[in-house]
Amino acid sequence: MFENIDGYYAVFIAGLKSRLVYKKDWVMWMLVRFAAALVMVLVFTAIYLGSGTTSIKGFTLPFIYSYFFIENAIWFGISTDILGQMQDDIQGGTVASALIKPISYTGRLLSNGLANTSMSLIAVCLPLLVVGIALSGVAISLQTALVFAGELVIAYGLYSVFSFLIGTTAVYLVEVWAVSSIYWGIVGIMNGVLMPLSFLPVWLQNILTFTPFPAMAYTEVSTLLGTVSSQYIIETMASGAIWLAVLACFAYLWWGRVRKDITSAGG
C-alpha cells in the first residue's frame, strides 16, 4: 500500500476537490450538527431543571452544554464516509473501476475518507469545538491539546476500521443502511454521544472499559473538559490502540476473504 504514496495523495486531493464543489452542503451540515447539539442541550436542561439538581456525576449544566457541542464536533469529524463509499461501489458496480488502478482498494477508501474528514474538521467540527470550549470556560493547555490530538487519531482509526468492516457486508447484503443504522445506534450509546458514560450504570461502565467504544468520543471530550483522571486517559488510549491493531489485522484478513465474493454488474 505504501508503494504508491503519490497515487493515494492524488485520490485525497481529488476527494477534497469534489467535496469543495458542494460548499453550501457543508454549511447545511454545520447547521445540522449545531441543531443536534442544541437538541441534547434542551433535553438535559429539562432534566437538570426538573430534578432541581445543579450537578449530575460531576457534570454541571454549563459543562453539559459544552459536552454536547464538543461531542458532536468529534462525532461528525471522525465518522468517515467509508461505509457509504463501499455501499455505492458494490451496489453500483464501480468497485470494478476502483480495482483496475494500481492502488489498493482499502488505501483508496482511506484516502478518500480522509478528504471527507478534512472537510468535516474545517467546515463543521472547528466551529462546534470553539463554541463547546468557550462554553466550558476551560483553558486548554498544550499538553491537553496534544493528548486530545492523539486520542482523535486512535478514534479516527477505530471508526474507519469499523466502517470498513460493516461496509464489507455490502458484498453479501448490497443494501447496508439498516446494518449501519444499527451500528451507529449501538456506538452512539456506548461512546457517549447520547450522554456522558459516567451517567450509565456502573456495571455497564465496567463492561465498556473492555471495549474500544469509550476511546471513540467520550475520552476525547472528557480530556478537553478535564473530567477524567490521567490514568483513565492512558488506559483508554492504550486499550483503543490495541483494539485498533487487532481490528485492523482482522479487517485485512477478512477483506482477503470477502474480495473473492465480489461481483460487479452481473459479472
Binding site: 469534489s18 464501480t94 473501476s97
Partner: peptide, 13 residues
C-alpha cells in the same frame, strides 16, 4: 481497462 458504463472519472469534477 474500459469497463463499459463503469467510469473511472470523478463525477463532480
Amino acid at each position: 481497462a474500459v469497463l463499459g458504463a463503469h467510469s473511472q472519472l470523478i463525477w463532480d469534477l
